[in-house]
């Protein structure tokens, strides 16, 4: 599962642009993933210029 590291995001929208299911909501300085829609494809994690996302399962191993 993808999580957003607190206080790291710069709210640029790069992840939103590649998200295939439009599950990321980005207000001025407020970002949310809708887990009901997210398909865990991890493209947000792969595209983020500043490593804001974390793959939680992988991190726990």
């Amino acid at each position: 599962m993808i999580e957003i590291k607190p206080n790291k995001c710069d709210f640029c929208g790069c992840c939103v642009g590649v998200c295939p299911v439009d599950c990321i909501d980005l207000k001025e300085a407020d970002i949310d993933i809708d887990y009901n829609v997210c398909i865990d494809c991890k493209l947000c994690l792969y595209i983020c210029p500043i490593e804001v996302f974390e793959d939680v399962e992988t991190a726990e191993i």
Binding site: V16, G17, V18, D22, L26, Y46
Partner: peptide, 17 residues
């Protein structure tokens, strides 16, 4: 770059990786 308005109207705006 977010281009969600288009998606809401059914346009394919997602950027390929």
């Amino acid at each position: 770059v977010e281009s969600r308005v288009g998606r809401w109207a059914g346009l394919a705006t997602v950027v390929k990786m």
